[in-house]
Design a protein around this nucleic acid. Structure first.
Lengths: 140, 140
DNA sequence: ATCGGGGTTCCAGCCGCTGGAAGGTCAAGG
DNA sequence: CCTTGACCTTCCAGCGGCTGGAACCCCGAT
């Protein structure tokens, strides 16, 4: 099986597959003509990698997960630990984005968005007494 | 004012300030000895950039925002549009992360995390009938 | 013989810094 | 006057995870 078919079956672009070989995630054989020769097991690995990446695991996490997957005497605790750490990372990112989102939403709401130059968003970024107003209860 | 003080006042690392000059966000003067000479206005710009970056704006967005900030005949609509588009980007990222979070949380919960090899996380990544069980109502 | 659609390698670029090497400048202290 | 040490300078490389492109090879069909 050539790289094109492996790409089609695994759902990964051929470029990505070559890259994964480059960094040692997979080691396909070679045909006499130099073409990569993928076995079923490699396509499985590629699909595994695609799903792990879709869950946001780093390449290094993927490498570890792949090794654990291959190793029949693994301990599920090792897998779980990786997943839990990744979960924490995701939570941190979500928290950061949520904070940004809250600030931006407030600023966007306060901005008239018309042809006049006055803009609470720029005032906030300039930190010149940015807070729009002390607000009243009806806001929330 | 040298770069060290500008860094201290703006809250940005000196390295980042040099980089910002490199890509044309600021244009500090130079002393006779070749040292960058920062004016107050440049420190203000740097702080502005720091806050914009903290809100997750891209460098190109920052460039646009900075230009609008400088331009007294701006229209707040231009600022607002940039902010709204960025808000959409943030929302997409949050959505993506939230999806990952949900999947991972389910998988982590299903994994025993002990010394045995059986692991629903790996099963899911391998896509071999991953769903743990049809579950009953008490789960949620 | 030629053409199109595969495949190959290698290098560069994306984003936004960050680290490090190799060197210049300056004020203070011996 | 010399040294020390803290600052400053430029330039190059690397992070993650690909992605695009150039320049080339291979293979089957016409």
């Amino acid at each position: 099986m050539n790289i094109g078919e492996a790409a089609g079956r695994s759902g990964l672009p051929a470029k990505t597959i070559r890259y994964y070989e480059d960094i040692g995630l997979i080691k396909p054989l070679r045909d006499a003509n130099g073409y990569r020769a993928f076995r079923e097991s490699e396509v499985q690995k590629l699909a595994f990698l695609g799903r792990a990446r879709a869950l946001g695991f780093t390449i290094e996490d993927c490498r570890s997960l792949l090794q654990l997957w291959e190793k029949s005497d693994r301990e599920s605790a090792d897998v779980k630990r990786i997943a839990e750490e990744h979960l924490t990372t995701i939570e941190e990112k979500i928290a950061e984005l949520t904070t940004m989102h809250a600030s931006l939403t407030r600023l966007v709401a306060a901005c008239a968005g018309d042809d006049r130059p006055d803009c609470p968003i720029l005032l906030d970024l300039a930190a010149e007494e940015a807070r729009p107003e002390p607000v009243t209860d009806d806001v929330r």
